[in-house]
Design a protein around this nucleic acid. Structure first.
Length: 227
DNA sequence: GCGACAG
DNA sequence: ATCTTGTCGC
């Protein structure tokens, strides 16, 4: 899938510049549902970190594509490079985007849906990694995070499938979704071209046995073994 | 002003 | 994210 990620023409030097980019791209995120009809290939993305020789750090972006029906691996790609931005809460897309876009470019087939670790709409400026990834690739993206970043929510029911809306500054920005009975919920938020209801349905269907959806678990494992 | 803060 | 062993429980 060549040319999905633009050859980064401008990259922020400061946090202020990074925030300006988020503000400028935010309107481009499509938050209208429902989203793609028939999803055949789903990709999970994750990044692992490694200290680099002589200072700095390396980021390893991994993408694992699964057959949405059987959950069997249909493709994968891994890319390791030097981190281009420091970790700043709210701006970590600028750390993970480069290796992820590079890995996506190495895929043979274009996925119908992307699942990334981290938030989408549930972000201080409503433009987390999932939204940024969607705007840059044009693909439908769902954000799945392990911890709450912004907003608050009630305790979802104990059973798999139960959920509670995450509200931030008066807006519903996502959901705390229980993917397995009795386990901590994951935080699902819209990234691009997928409705919230549909996003939760996809996450639930893709997480038949563990807390995190299978595509993300596979990407997590791949990024570690190759970093 | 102080602390907290996706990964 | 990463640093880290065993251990309690299903």
């Amino acid at each position: 899938m060549r040319h999905l990620g633009r050859p980064a023409p401008e990259w922020p030097e400061t946090a202020v510049e990074a925030e300006e980019i988020q503000e400028r791209l935010r309107p481009l995120a499509d938050l209208s549902g429902p989203g793609p009809r028939d999803v055949r290939l789903v990709a999970g993305l994750d990044v692992a970190y490694t200290p680099a020789e002589g200072g700095g750090e390396l980021v390893t972006g991994a993408v694992v594509v699964l057959d949405a029906a059987t959950l069997e691996v249909a493709g994968q790609a891994v890319v390791t490079e030097r981190a281009r931005f420091p970790y700043v809460p709210g701006l970590f897309a600028f750390r993970e985007l480069p290796p992820l876009l590079a890995a996506l470019d190495r895929l043979d087939a274009v996925p119908d849906l992307l699942l990334c670790d981290g938030h989408g709409l549930a972000h201080p400026r409503r433009f987390g990694l999932a939204c940024h990834l969607g705007v840059l690739t044009g693909l439908p993206v769902i954000g799945v995070a392990k911890t709450l970043f912004v907003g608050e929510h009630g305790e979802p029911g104990r059973e798999r499938g139960a959920y509670a809306p995450v509200v931030h500054e008066g807006d519903v920005v996502g959901r705390a979704l229980r993917t397995q009975d009795g386990v901590r919920p994951v935080y699902v938020s819209q990234g691009h071209r997928v409705g919230l209801d549909e996003a939760c349905e996809h996450v639930l269907r893709l997480a038949p046995a563990y807390r995190l959806p299978e595509p993300i678990r596979r990407a997590d494992h791949l990024s570690r073994h190759r970093s």
